[in-house]
């Protein structure tokens, strides 16, 4: 197939073929990470702007390393250093980035749809690094990549996504990607954070973690975001751990080859037991490494096509 997108806004708009193509391309870039010189000239002369209106050290760093390995020049702009907080609109800020001839803009934003808003108005490539509770496509791609690397394929697997689904862009992008590649998806969490409405997307919703432990091929634990939870969503961390935490006891009931994933940062002892997070089934650090390869692939494909 031929890659024809200048932007990566979400997984929902991608075909299964495009997702596979991205993962295959990421394979090639993963090899670059093993070289003595981990840098290729693919995007030499291109300028990438990491535009993080909502702070995130982890994703920003990953994109930055990926871009540097592709020989692009990288500028980081965060909300605190941007004029957005001085009342400039997103459109005006973006137009200024374009006037600087930014070839790629990696956008993290608290509003769903902000990357699409930019992409419709700019010639630059726009890569969504997480928008509101909407999508986080590169996180889903690196999750799919990690699953495929271990299981050979994604089709036919049973993947449980556990935690705060309602406010999670990681969950949405994963749901879209997993379903497109033929996995079976179960969402697990409190009824306030995993509304039944999600079943219309083609997944199963349950509020009992015990129901998925023995059949899951992958458990993907999402961070419980203390700061975001209004107190009415669940009574407290203690009760959350009791009902939905992947404790040692629950860990024993997982299939021996079940992968434990987490997009980070981890709350040890909340959504996952500390030892399980570091255990043999955990692929959490691999996810981070694979994130580089996946982001290199995305930047190469979106930034490399003639516009």
């Amino acid at each position: 197939m031929r890659w024809q997108r200048k932007d990566l806004l979400g997984i929902r708009e991608l075909s299964a073929e495009e997702i596979i193509f991205l993962l295959d391309t990421a394979d090639a870039f993963k090899e670059v990470g093993t070289r003595e010189i981990k840098k290729v000239p693919a995007l030499r002369g291109k300028t990438l702007v990491n535009f993080f209106v909502e702070p995130s050290t982890r994703t920003r760093t990953s994109f930055e390393i990926a871009a540097i390995r592709l020989s692009a020049d990288v500028i980081n702009i965060s909300a605190s250093s941007s004029s957005l907080i001085k009342g400039e609109t997103l459109k005006d800020t973006a137009k200024i980035l374009e006037a600087y001839h930014a070839d790629l803009i990696v956008l993290r934003h608290s509003s769903s749809g902000a990357p699409q808003f930019l992409a419709e108005r700019l010639k630059s490539s726009v890569i969504n690094a997480g928008d509101g509770a909407h999508e986080h496509p590169t996180q889903a791609l690196l999750d799919l990549y990690t699953i495929r690397a271990h299981k050979g394929t994604v089709a036919g697997l049973h993947v449980a996504i556990i935690g705060d689904i309602l406010f999670s862009r990681v969950a949405r992008s994963n749901i879209f990607g997993l379903l497109k590649l033929g996995a079976r998806v179960t969402l697990v969490g409190p009824s306030t954070l995993v509304p039944r409405e999600f079943e219309k997307l083609g997944v199963t919703v349950t509020h009992k973690l015990d129901e998925v432990l023995e059949t899951a091929d992958v458990v993907n634990l999402l961070r419980i975001q203390h700061e975001r939870q209004r107190k009415e969503y669940f009574p407290g961390i203690g009760e959350y751990v009791r009902l939905f935490g992947l404790t040692k006891e629950r860990g024993k009931r997982l299939k021996p080859d079940c992968l434990i994933m987490h997009p980070g940062p981890i709350n040890r002892g909340v959504e996952i037991d500390s030892e399980l997070a570091d255990g043999t089934q955990s692929v959490i650090l691999e996810q981070v490494t694979n994130g580089l390869a996946v982001r290199m692939a995305v930047l190469y494909l979106c930034g490399g096509i003639a516009t």
């Binding site: 890659w3 391309t25 291109k46 490399g304 096509i305």
Partner: peptide, 13 residues
């Protein structure tokens, strides 16, 4: 790169 409408499929070396 960036001058051709189609990117070659990259493979691992």
């Amino acid at each position: 790169i960036g001058t051709r409408p189609e990117l070659p499929r990259v493979q691992a070396s």
